[in-house]
Computed example of a mutant assay.
Amino acid sequence: MIRRHMFMSALAATVALSGCGGGDKSTATPTPTATPTPTPTASPTYTAFPLAAAAEFNTYSAAISYTGDPATSAVTLGAASTETLSTRVRLATDTAVATGTYVMRENTEESRFCVPTGQTCTSTLVTPSAVGNPEFVFRTNDATTAGKFSQVEYLNNVVKDTSSNVPALVLNRVSYASWWRGDSTAGQKRLAYTAWGYSTVYTDMPATGTVNYSTLTVTGRLVSTVGTTTAINKVTGTVTMATNFATGVVDMTLTLSTIPTGGGAPVAYGTFTAQGAIPVGQNQWTGSFVTGSPLSGTLAGGFFGSQAEQVGTVFSATGTFGGAQQRLIGVVVGKK
């Protein structure tokens, strides 16, 4: 009995050790760790024109100046410049031309425009916001200082129900405005063109591929002096623009014409070729007119809306062309 008891005890110990794995050299298969599914980055959303409420915008801007009376003499031409997106030149727009207030501001200088529909205003609505009008225009003439004025021209895409139906100007992310003002008949005049809107978010900028912006509109003004005379003409024309988002290179060609002061068919002026670059990680670009262009100058512009779907660029230039001293200023807006 004693011997059988010892044998059973040893057997039980062996079974116990075996159950503990003390003699088993096999290894258990580890449970795989689940790989977390990355949360997709949401595409940004953009506000669109026409406006649903009054709004204020920073702008890309180009500026020139001149001093004197262009109706009687050759004016003295000032400098020309362009500026990337900044708060120094900004504007406010409203949703109804008849009752809203429209503001242009550069540094500490400001002009406010509205028509006297229940408001204390002296502005005249020169061109209304209507579906057939590319722009709507306000002008204020000072009643106490001869030749003192302020005029603003807005691309007609910001006012609901009366926006332009011109196909090239049906833009919902970018717009433009120009601001022309003078201190007196013989005093200084200043002219600015601006581009503004809903800029493309940095993370939404394309990083590959070349995009040709095929629907572009250009407008501006040319101030020209020769002898004792001055001519100020609106500028129109055609534009091509190609942007290589992989390299950041921007190529633009502007074929410009001037519009006679008294109206009539545009008169061919010249072809300007420009090249610029988009800094890494940015949504704007700067550039200059290259050799062979009629005048020398600079450009500054940016991209607007989803995946840089729309563009806005301002430009200014200076020099002698056709025997005349000239200053050129304008803006290009458009879409893919």
Rank of each mutant, 00 (worst) to 15 (best):
T258F: 13
Y46W: 11
Y154W: 14
I329H: 02
L169N: 11
F304V: 05
G302W: 05
G100A: 00
T208K: 06
T101D: 07
E110V: 15
G264W: 02
T247I: 04
Y60E: 11
V89G: 07
I232G: 11
T145I: 10
E309K: 07
N133Y: 08
T82V: 15
Y46F: 06
L216V: 01
C121H: 08
D24K: 09
C20K: 07
T247D: 06
S111I: 04
M205D: 03
P279C: 05
V314P: 00
S306H: 12
R139C: 12
E309S: 15
T127D: 03
V239M: 00
T35N: 12
T67N: 09
A10Q: 08
D251Q: 13
S9T: 14
N157P: 09
A246C: 01
N172M: 09
K25C: 12
T72S: 14
A55F: 02
F138I: 02
G21C: 14
T101E: 07
V159S: 02
D69T: 12
G237I: 04
G100D: 04
G323N: 03
L51A: 11
T14M: 15
T217L: 06
T291K: 00
T67I: 12
V333A: 03
T258N: 03
V89F: 12
Q307N: 15
G287I: 10
L11Q: 07
Q188M: 12
G118T: 01
A54T: 06
G334C: 05
T72K: 11
K234V: 15
D142H: 00
V152D: 02
P206Y: 13
V115R: 00
V103P: 03
T286G: 07
A207C: 05
Y198E: 13
V15K: 04
K335R: 14
A130T: 13
S296F: 11
A265G: 08
A42R: 05
R139D: 13
D94P: 02
K160F: 10
G292Y: 10
F272D: 08
S150C: 03
Q326A: 01
A53N: 11
S18Y: 06
N165R: 08
L254P: 04
Y193V: 05
